[in-house]
Amino acid sequence: MNIYIGNLAYTVSEDDLRDAFSEFGEVANASIINDKFSGRSKGFGFVEMPKDSEAREAIESMNGKDLNGRTVTVNEAKPREERPREERSPRRDRY
Score class of each variant (00 low, 15 high):
Gly39His: 05
Leu67Asp: 07
Ala55Gln: 07
Leu67Glu: 09
Asn7Phe: 03
Ser38Asp: 00
Ile32Leu: 11
Ser53Lys: 14
Phe37Asn: 01
Ser13Lys: 06
Phe44Gln: 09
Ser13Trp: 10
Pro50Ala: 14
Gly25Pro: 06
Val72Gly: 03
Glu26Ile: 14
Phe37Val: 13
Met49His: 06
Arg70Gly: 10
Val27Glu: 07
Leu8His: 08
Glu54Asp: 15
Thr71Ala: 12
Gly39Glu: 02
Arg70Tyr: 03
Gly69Cys: 11
Thr71Lys: 15
Gly69His: 02
Phe46Asn: 05
Gly64Asp: 10
Tyr10Gly: 04
Arg70Ala: 03
Ala28Arg: 11
Asp15Arg: 13
Ser41Ala: 04
Ser31Val: 12
Lys36Asn: 14
Asn29Pro: 00
Asp66Val: 00
Gly39Thr: 07
Ser41Cys: 06
Asp66Trp: 05
Glu26Asp: 15
Gly6Cys: 00
Lys36Gly: 13
Ile33Thr: 08
Gly25Lys: 04
Met62Thr: 09
Ala58Trp: 07
Ile32Asp: 07
Gly45Ser: 10
Ile32Gln: 03
Gly39Asp: 01
Asp35Ala: 11
Lys42Phe: 05
Val27Asn: 09
Ala20Lys: 11
Asp16Tyr: 02
Glu14Gly: 03
Phe24Gln: 13
Val47Cys: 04
Gly64Ala: 05
Arg40Met: 08
Glu60Gln: 14
Met62Trp: 02
Asn29Asp: 13
Arg56Asn: 14
Lys42Thr: 02
Arg70Met: 00
Gly64Cys: 10
Val72Leu: 03
